[in-house]
Design a protein around this nucleic acid. Structure first.
Lengths: 237, 237
DNA sequence: TCAGACAGACTGGTCCAACCAGTTGACGGG
DNA sequence: CCCGTCAACTGGTTGGACCAGTCTGTCTGA
């Protein structure tokens, strides 16, 4: 087995995690006031500063609204939280089934990836086109090691998204990669079909190199939609 | 003129903003160590705790990596930052021209919105379909007040994205709405063309109500692509 | 000469204690 | 009944102290 670095979590990390899960899972409803910082510190046997640091992170995620003098209140994450929250949503199976979340992320990746491939074919400079072709070569060369292919696949799509010249796509891609897609929640055999279509990826690189926007979009759609339908099937069971 | 609530910013907000801008604008290159917390506190004449809270938020955004014992190092935001960063990118015109960012956001909104409309037509329950129709009615009724139309337009698309049943789309939508699109960076006259197509929006609602996924996608694409091409023109000038 | 152990000077992590600055709500006078 | 006042909250900020890792230069032994 391959060893991974030990995840060392600080006190404020624990506080953050607990509060985040409590909020997303609905333990605290939107509009509800959170216990005061001093009270949270007392209950969790933690210093107030640790609580404050955790609250800052929750605020940054869009989960709470803090106001001096008044209580810190819970926001409706369906309204105020950004895509980065997806990176943290791995523990709340009751509220949001993990299979559904995976399907959603794949669906979004397909949507973004298709348009990014189109734009990459239209807007990318020669160096980037070459980089895409190179990334595909690296990807194909990684076969049949699924883990390495996975890694190379992400690198490939990062190139494409970068080549699209759309910063919003790039940031969203980061959110998705850092999110449920990459947490290892999806067992290897589930991605086999997607990852093994090396011919399809080669074709995609060629279309991008040729500057054929519509062709690249179509090919990307084909490549990215297959796993979505598979995931959709999975949610029904 | 319409009055707006006074934005009151805390000390740690200022620290956060300064560091964020310094990082995104490249003052600190990826891999560079940030000054120590004590040093930052001394330079900014601020307590160390305030610095720490700001650093937590930067960490949450994916802009820095902090490690006990070692220095806090700057990450490459093009690799590690999520879409939420777009909500903060309004001041770094040199690195990322604001017109380009607006175009990117509109492009992404068009991409997501098109697929969300398709899924909404396919998957939404009757209540949600009715809500979409109602939102369009409210939107049309808001004419010709551009500000109210803007608000109603956002509410309408929120309904559609919600109806798509895709949580990733919903969170991304929040990021985009909270981001450059809503900061008032785009003068009213620039959105006129998009906002005034009431007939097109009515048609979209009808297609969604009928469950015509492809039709809804096409109509949504028409509605959302127009502002993108306009914004693209703008970036050339 | 050089590899490796070691010590000290950093780094961030946590805690305590105090005070400032807003908000809230109950209480009492008009 | 209304409205101002004030006390008891809330979060905001500061200072200082100490723990716990990391890094680096130095010094020792081979």
């Amino acid at each position: 087995m391959n060893l991974r670095p030990v995840p060392r979590s600080s006190v404020s990390d624990h506080v953050f995690g607990q509060l985040r899960d409590a909020i997303v899972s609905g333990t605290y409803a939107p509009g509800d006031p959170l216990p005061s910082e001093r009270e949270l510190g007392a209950v969790l046997t933690v210093n107030r500063h640790a609580v404050r640091e955790a609250l800052r992170r929750l605020q940054q995620l869009g989960l709470v609204r803090v106001s001096q003098g008044g209580a810190t209140r819970v926001l409706d994450w369906r309204v105020h939280a950004g895509l980065d929250l997806a990176m943290s949503l791995t523990q709340v199976d009751e509220v949001l089934p993990i299979d559904t979340l995976v399907r959603d992320v794949l669906e979004m990746r397909a949507c973004i990836g298709t348009d990014a491939a189109r734009l990459c074919a239209l807007r990318a400079d020669p160096a980037t086109r070459a980089a895409v072709t190179g990334a595909v070569t690296g990807y194909v060369g990684a076969a049949p090691d699924l883990d390495r292919m996975d890694q190379a696949n992400i690198a490939l799509w990062r190139q494409i998204v970068q080549g699209s010249g759309n910063t919003a796509y790039l940031l969203a891609f980061n959110s998705l990669v850092g999110g449920a897609l990459a947490v290892g929640r999806v067992p290897p055999q589930r991605r086999t079909a997607e990852l093994l279509d090396t011919a399809g990826h080669r074709r995609l690189a060629a279309l991008i190199a040729d500057g054929d926007g519509d062709g690249a979009a179509g090919q990307a759609h084909t490549l990215l939609t297959a796993p979505v339908t598979a995931a959709t099937e999975r949610t029904r069971t």
